[in-house]
Amino acid sequence: MNQGFTVPKFRLPGFVAAVGAKLPQWPHALALVAGLNLAVKMRLLPEDSLNTLEDRLFRVRVRDTGGEAAFTYRGGLFRPVFRPGREPDLAFAANLSAFLQLLNRQEDPDTLFFNRELEITGDTELGLVVKNMLDAVEWPSLPRLPLARR
C-alpha cells in the first residue's frame, strides 16, 4: 500500500467551492455509493460492522470543492439519498487532499482529526465503526490514483 507516490497537502481556491456547491450533487453520491457497493460485493467490508450501518444516514462533504453526498445503507446495499430532510447520523467534512490521503492510507484519520483537517460530527460510535471498518479493509491492489509520483 502507498508505495511509489504521495498525495500532497493542498487546498483548492475558495471559488471552486462556491461554484461546486451550485452544481448538482448527485454525481458525487452515485460515484461514492457505487464504490462502496463494489466493496460490499467483493466482501471487503465485514458483515458485523455493516449491520450496524443499517438505515443510518451519512454525509460526506468536500470542503474545498463544495461537493456533498448523502447516502444510507439498507438491505445489503449503500443507496444515495438525494433529499435527506434530516441531519445525518454521521457526517465527515474535509478538503479533497485530506480525503485522498485517507483513501491512500497515507495519513491516519486520528492525525487528521487531531489537526482539525478532518471533521467528524454526529454519532461517535458509528464514526468509530466506519473508521475501523475502512481501516480493516484489505484493498486488492487498486488502480493507482492518477497523481504525481514522488
Binding site: M1, N2, R105, Q106, E107, D108, P109, D110, T111, K131, D135
Partner: peptide, 10 residues
C-alpha cells in the same frame, strides 16, 4: 492498536 495502518507504517 486503535490507530490506522497509516500510523503503524509511519
Amino acid at each position: 492498536r486503535q490507530r490506522s495502518p497509516a500510523y503503524v507504517t509511519q
